[in-house]
Amino acid sequence: MPLPLNYTLDQKVGEGTYAVVYLGKQTLTGRQIAVKQIKTGGFKDGLDMSALREVKYLQELRHENIIELVDVYATPENLNLVLEFLPYDLEMLIRDREVIFTPGDVKSWMLMFLRGLHHCHRNGILHRDLKPNNLLISPSGSLKIADFGLARSLGLPDERLTSNVVTRWYRAPELLFGSIHYTEAVDVWAAGIIFAELMLRTPYLPGADDADQLIVTFKALGTPTESNWPGVSNLPLYDSIEVFSQPSRQELRNRFLAATEAALDMMSQMVELDPSKRNDTTGLLLQKYFVEFPLPTEPELLPKRTKKET
């Protein structure tokens, strides 16, 4: 078991209800690392479940587009995940008004994102909390999926899953309706909403609360009905909601002015209301969008953050 002495914690960079993040170095190599120190309250009730999951899934998933877990160690008060150092996230970039995104930049991020996600899914692991905030950017420009605290592996098809997952704005319609038998498609939906956000430079479906999320989502993408999604009315929280029609192609073009037809094709396949019609990561990676011009920007050439700490 590694001693805490193997790492120095130099600077506190973030604090949440669940963890504190420090920047530090690996003493032996001088490599920059981030340490996610999980508050355990002296382990009064044992090891934290989401910490255990994060450890397990990061150990299982090694991929250049997934954050690397360098080490884990426990002290009597804390559980520490030693992670690769990733200076900023996609949300910071989206909000940074001084940064200009080209279509090639968006394509490059989506390509790296979907590769990482494909790696999770082909290993039977759902992320369940995809949002720009959890997509981190390395100093060399690579995008890496992080925060596996809500992840789980997909077991038997009849297993009950909790529908209380994914940050509200990125929650798929089956989750909004309280489905307990969902699939990788919930991650694909979130990825589609992130894709839209990258093109719009503003959150695509910002619901104010859970009820508003339904309205915002269906206003933009149409209300699920038995005709476009057979079986939807059996979902636990399905209710007769105001029926908005699905957007026409022209309406989508007007909303996403800079998007090519192939980009709109891909997005539409990611935000299909019916999860069984939504494309999977394999299908998405083979989209025309990724091979048509403009080609994805090389990661090293992607826009960097201009502002320092806010």
């Binding site: 150990q59 299982e60 090694r62 991929h63 250049e64 587009n65 390509l111 590769r115 494909h118 790696h119 394999t282 990676l285 083979l286 990724f290």
Partner: peptide, 10 residues
């Protein structure tokens, strides 16, 4: 092996 290499589909 548990720790496979990065995969590239495209």
């Amino acid at each position: 092996f548990g720790n496979n290499q990065p995969a590239r589909i495209i």
